[in-house]
Design a protein around this nucleic acid. Structure first.
Lengths: 224, 224
DNA sequence: GACATTGGAGAGTAGCACTACCCAATAATG
DNA sequence: CATTATTGGGTAGTGCTACTCTCCAATGTC
């Protein structure tokens, strides 16, 4: 199929596809001549993947590049695989949010709290560093904004995340190279799903509380 | 305090504060003369809030504006309050990710699946519309990217989110206007926290599985 | 042979979040 | 009262991202 067919199949304009080709997000088609190339189903899939990462997981192009690199060069072990996926993600998020890591050696109380939280859950692998740092940063930011996360609340988050993560890990077919896609892309695309579900669950929980306490709030229709 | 003092207290450059003033993210200080105004602690708090929403929750300025508007004009009931918070969020996220809502009346299988999922959890309030739509969109995007979310997986997500949301709702002081801050800002700032925790829990879970199955992967150190 | 299409590349665009600069009015200081 | 620094207010410019447009000669197709 030619580029215009690829554009039709995916709903992405030809100009954008050319851009992706230039940026290396899309591998070049099999050149049949100097100004002609053939694209196949793998290209369709890749374009759809790129679009999903951009639109749903809201990755930047740089982030997409990282993820694709990880996909094209799958690490050996399960664990490294997850690490690679997370690394790709971290890179991207760090870029868009200037993480003001003081990088000093003095003990940061927020990172401490994050560490204690993680420990209390029994999550005491090594190499958490980046993620725990990140968690500490987020707790600090929340505090600066005047929001209090109680220990109970964070503990509930941790329990909820354990449920989620256990299912994540269980859902991956063992050892296959196809697992990579599931882990990397699944992790990324599940993020927004989880957040949306949280909102839904909040609505449900708040409705229950409201109902129980006889709250008569004006139930405004969801704005269009 | 003058604007330069505000800049020092918050670590935000004066030029940026002026920009925020112009954009209405920061209320003007009490003018003591035509070219002088006094700022107080509420301004410090607001600046920190804005920064947290931008850096941690990675909202756009437009999103921050929405959130602040909701904060300044708190709805009467608990439930509406949450709705306002979520509305503000949706606006923002919809802007940055062009939600390709077909808006047709034909039944969308993905939205259907989302609806069934929500129903099966007993979350059958009204006015879920936007969120369920959103969930359907996300499931469709994942499918397009070739990622399969099994029913079991989504159910586990839902259970995890129930845990989280129950804690969210329980953590809010009843009926106070201060609750608004906790709900709106807490919801937003907790999002990244939850995602980070998910990553941590995944690491933990994958390490356990790897350990159990005798996996000998090269445990690369987390890249700095 | 006529004409649309292609690959390749450069340049241009729009939006976002600042950032720099300028101005007259004012405050602070001596 | 003179001097200097700072302020509010505004305009314009910056850097970045993700496209989008335009051009070209080579090619495929009829």
């Amino acid at each position: 199929m030619r580029i215009s067919a690829l554009a039709e199949r995916t709903g992405v304009p030809v100009a954008t596809l050319k851009y992706y080709l230039r940026e290396g997000l899309l591998p070049p088609g099999a050149a049949t001549a100097r100004t002609q190339a053939q694209y196949d189903e793998t290209h369709v899939e890749r374009v759809r993947l790129v679009r999903a990462l951009i639109e749903s997981a809201s990755l930047s192009l740089a982030g997409v590049r990282q993820v694709l690199a990880a996909l094209d060069d799958p690490p050996a072990s399960w664990h490294d695989l997850l690490g690679a996926a997370q690394h790709a993600l971290l890179m991207d998020e760090d870029q868009r949010a200037g993480s003001s890591r003081p990088s000093g050696d003095q003990p940061d109380p927020w990172v401490d709290r994050a560490t204690r939280l993680v420990r209390s859950r029994g999550w005491d692998c090594d190499e958490y560093d980046t993620l725990v740092q990140r968690l500490g940063d987020q707790l600090r930011a929340a505090d600066a904004a005047g929001v209090v996360f109680t220990d109970d609340l964070l503990d509930a988050y941790a329990r909820g995340c354990e449920t989620i993560a256990a299912a994540d890990v269980a859902s991956v077919p063992e050892g296959a190279a196809a697992a990579m896609r599931q882990v990397v892309v699944g992790t990324l695309l599940a993020d927004p799903v989880i957040l949306t579900m949280r909102r839904l669950a909040q609505q449900h929980a708040s409705a229950e509380v409201a109902g129980a306490s006889g709250e008569g709030g004006t139930a405004s229709a969801t704005p269009g």
